[in-house]
Design a protein around this nucleic acid. Sequence first.
DNA 1: GAACTGACTGTAA
DNA 2: ATTACAGCCAGTT
Length: 115
Amino acid sequence: MRRGKRAPRSEEANPALQAIWHVVCSIPRGRAATYGTVARAAGFPGRARQAGFALRRSPQGLRLPWHRVVGAGGRIVFAPGSAAHREQARRLRAEGVALRRGRVPPEAMTDLSQL
DNA sequence: GAACTGACTGTAA
DNA sequence: ATTACAGCCAGTT
């Protein structure tokens, strides 16, 4: 049977998504990382968008600290005023992250390279 | 297989 | 500082 490729119907069967989720889980509490950094740490440099896709497709069964993932410059990618934006800001703040106009200060940012 | 879309990023106006 | 636009990559239609 020349079925060179299998069909992972479930997201949890995707190693790429798992890798990204794993990296997100490894983000220390009280810190934040950018999509690009997460993707790079997961082994996919230059695929920041894929990191976002992985988070969006992440099963709710996982207790994933998605709120620790922000856009470049520590900026929250969600539209300001939206529910997601507020929730992420709220969660970050709950972890001790001082948000500045919806932005995470560089000090709270981690490159995940030290892990 | 082409076209569209998106939890991105960097540069320009 | 803010807004617009283009580039990039992978998944979805």
